[in-house]
Design a protein around this nucleic acid. Structure first.
Lengths: 157, 157
DNA sequence: TATTGTTATACTCTATAACTATA
DNA sequence: TATAGTTATAGAGTATAACAATA
C-alpha cells in the first residue's frame, strides 16, 4: 500500500482561508456596529479616500458591487454626514461623492480597528511568521486584483 | 508634522483576509457546482469523516451551524447517496449519520479540488513564502478553534 | 417535561429589473 | 435613444421559532 498522503479537507489552505476570512469579517463587522457601519460602508469610505469626487457608478465598478448598493451605502453615509453628494454641473445625472472631515475621521477609526484586529490575529505568531504572512498577502493581494494601493511614499527616490 | 504613518484600510491584514477568504470561497463554490454541492455540504462530509455515526445535533455543534441547516444538508446528501441516516436503536430520536463509499469518493474529490485551488493560490509565492503561509495558518487555525486534525504522521519522532 | 429532528418563517445581504431624470 | 441614479423586487443563505416524535 503506497503510503496514502491522507490530506484532510480542513487542512487545506483554501478551507482555512475561507473560514478565517469569514471569522475575521464577522469580528470586524461586530466592531463596526459601534458606529452603525457595515464593512461595505468602510469600503465606500476607503474608495472615496482613493478616488475623491468619483461618481456612484465609478465607485460601483471600483468596489465590484451593484450600482444600487452604492445608493444605499451612500444614503446612509450621507445621512450621518460622512460623505457629501454633489451633482456634477457638467452632467447633472452624475452624483459626485466626497468624504467630509467626519468621513475621514470615521475611516481613520475603522482603519485603526482593523489594525487592532490584525494585532490580535498575529498575536500567536512569531515576528518572522507574522512578517511572512504579511509578505505572502501582499503577493496574493496583487495577484488577485485587490486594491494594492501605492502606500505612503517614504522613499520618493 | 510627525511623518504620519498613513496605513490604508486596504493594506490591513484583516481586510485582505476577509476579501481573499470570500474570493477563495466563491471560486471553490463554483468548482463544487459540478457535483451539485455547496461548501457546507463538504463541511458535513468532512465532519462525518472525522466523526462517523455522529447525530445531527452533534454535527451541528461541530460545524457551528443551526440544527435545521444540518437537516437540509443531510437531506440532499442522502438523496444523492453520499450519506446514510440510521436511527439510533438506543434512542430513536437520534439520526446517526454515516458516509457511504460514494460519500468518501465525493469528499476525496472535494479535497483534491481544494488542493488544486491551494496550488493556484500559492503559485505566485516563493517556496519559503508558501511554507511560511502554511505555518502561519496552522497557528491561526489552532488559535481560533478551527478543526486542526492530527495530520498524517510522516515524522513520528 | 426535556430533547432530537423537522418544518415554517423571517432576516440579512446583495443582485436584477423597472423606473425617473437628465443627456 | 442611451446613461446615471434610484426604487422595487427577488434570490441565496442561514437563523429562529413552532411543531412532532421520542425519551
Amino acid at each position: 500500500m503506497p503510503l496514502m498522503n491522507d490530506v484532510k479537507w480542513v487542512d487545506t489552505l483554501s478551507f482555512r482561508l475561507g473560514v478565517l476570512g469569514a471569522l475575521v469579517a464577522d469580528r470586524y463587522a461586530a466592531d463596526l456596529t459601534a458606529h452603525d457601519l457595515k464593512p461595505k460602508h468602510v469600503g465606500l469610505l476607503s474608495a472615496l479616500d482613493v478616488a475623491p469626487g468619483a461618481s456612484q457608478l465609478e465607485i460601483a465598478k471600483l468596489m465590484r458591487v451593484a450600482p444600487s448598493l452604492v445608493v444605499t451605502l451612500a444614503d446612509h453615509l450621507e445621512s450621518t454626514g460622512a460623505v457629501e453628494r454633489l451633482r456634477d454641473p457638467a452632467d447633472r445625472r452624475r452624483q459626485l461623492l466626497y468624504l467630509t472631515d467626519r468621513g475621514r475621521e470615521l475611516l481613520a477609526w475603522c482603519t485603526d480597528r482593523a489594525l487592532v484586529l490584525d494585532a490580535e490575529l498575529t498575536a500567536g505568531l512569531t515576528p518572522d511568521q507574522a512578517a511572512a504572512l504579511g509578505a505572502a498577502f501582499d503577493r496574493l493581494a496583487a495577484a488577485h486584483g485587490l486594491p494594492v494601493r501605492g502606500r505612503t511614499r517614504r522613499d520618493p527616490t
